[in-house]
Amino acid sequence: MTNPTLEIGGVAIAPGQKERLEIPVAQLPTRTTISLPVVVINGQYQGPRLWLSAAIHGDEINGVEIIRQILSKIKAKYLYGAIIAVPVVNVFGFIEQSRYLPDRRDLNRSFPGSPQGSLASRLAHLFMTEIVNHSTHGIDLHTAAQPRINLPQIRANLLDTETYRCAQAFGAPLMIHATTRDGSLRQAASKQGIPVLLYEAGEACRFDPQAIDIGVRGILHVMDLLEMYTHPLTEDLPSPSLEIEKTKWVRASRGGLLHLEVKLGDKIEKKQLLAIITDAFGETKAKIRSPDQGVVIGQVQNPLVNQGDAIVHLALA
């Protein structure tokens, strides 16, 4: 069945067409307009409408490259449904290499937003209106916050059948059942009945080739699952994901210089040595041991830590 015309940002995208849109967000003090960049590929045939978003936190750039690679592979004449891609949601933070908006708000705590609210609230409302409301499924791409790094992982409501099916198809090393946070994009979209995957991988302000490759293949696997293309987009099958229900941060018992004894993806036994913390002169040290059995899914990158800092993130077995 022929796909209907899709209207986003006041622009009509006919079946079989690809359009680049600039939806105005706000004006800077210089009167320069900041816009939300959107690429829409409206397929020739009717089917699911998948949104892809990245850089909701402006310093998380792996997803920008993932979306670029995905868009280079998709042709509208072979597509069922539509791809609605927003490679840089937080343009303000992206320019400044900052997690936040100019009003210091976290955009991913501002959904569903309001057209009369703060800058963050207005941008969230615009995204919901022009992107989420036109979609049937969503994949939101993130990295760890500075100064941390994450093992590639899917976070999603695994109790929802369709979300679980998509998470399995993605094929990340881990899929973690995660409840939604107040004000997050995932929470706002889920309340509208839209299955959403949140992909976390790598670190801020860096391209991580492995994280990017897993992200690209994961999205293509989900598109294959949803039967969005006339032929398979990938030849490989999704890798089985380790399913996790609980995670825990191990924290520094004292301040000092951190010497990690483990790396991302390591399987950890209870009481195994995770790290040693010394002072600047090496005269005193504290050993940090694992409180549980699990897998290392995140860790701090900055060796200078304070007492109570989160240093190793474990997925509990």
Rank of each mutant, 00 (worst) to 15 (best):
N3Y: 06
T5P: 05
L6W: 09
E7N: 15
I8W: 06
I8N: 03
V11G: 03
Q17V: 08
E19G: 05
R20I: 11
E22H: 05
Q27S: 12
T33Y: 10
L36H: 00
I41V: 14
I41K: 06
N42Y: 01
G43T: 10
Y45Q: 03
Y45A: 04
R49S: 00
I61T: 01
I67Y: 04
I70C: 02
L71I: 04
K75P: 00
I84Y: 03
V88F: 02
V91L: 04
G93H: 05
Q97C: 06
Q97K: 11
R99F: 06
L101N: 01
L101A: 05
P102E: 04
R109Y: 09
R109N: 07
L119Y: 06
L123S: 12
L123Q: 08
H125K: 09
L126Y: 07
F127L: 14
M128I: 12
I131H: 03
I139C: 07
D140C: 11
D140R: 01
D140A: 11
A145C: 08
P147L: 12
R148G: 03
R148H: 09
I149G: 07
N157E: 14
D160S: 11
E162W: 02
E162R: 05
E162F: 04
T163R: 08
Y164T: 00
A169M: 10
A172W: 02
H177W: 14
Q187V: 09
S190M: 15
K191T: 10
G193L: 07
P195A: 02
Y199Q: 02
E200K: 05
E200A: 04
G202K: 01
R206S: 15
F207N: 13
D208N: 15
P209A: 15
Q210N: 15
G215A: 06
R217M: 13
I219G: 04
L226F: 01
H231A: 13
E235W: 00
D236Y: 02
L237S: 14
P238E: 06
P240E: 06
S241M: 13
L242Y: 13
E243A: 01
E245Y: 12
K246Q: 11
W249A: 12
R251Q: 14
A252H: 01
L257K: 11
K263A: 15
G265I: 15
K267F: 10
K270W: 14
K270T: 15
K270I: 15
E283Y: 08
K287Q: 14
R289C: 11
R289V: 08
Q293D: 10
G298P: 03
Q299V: 03
V300W: 04
P303F: 11
N306S: 14
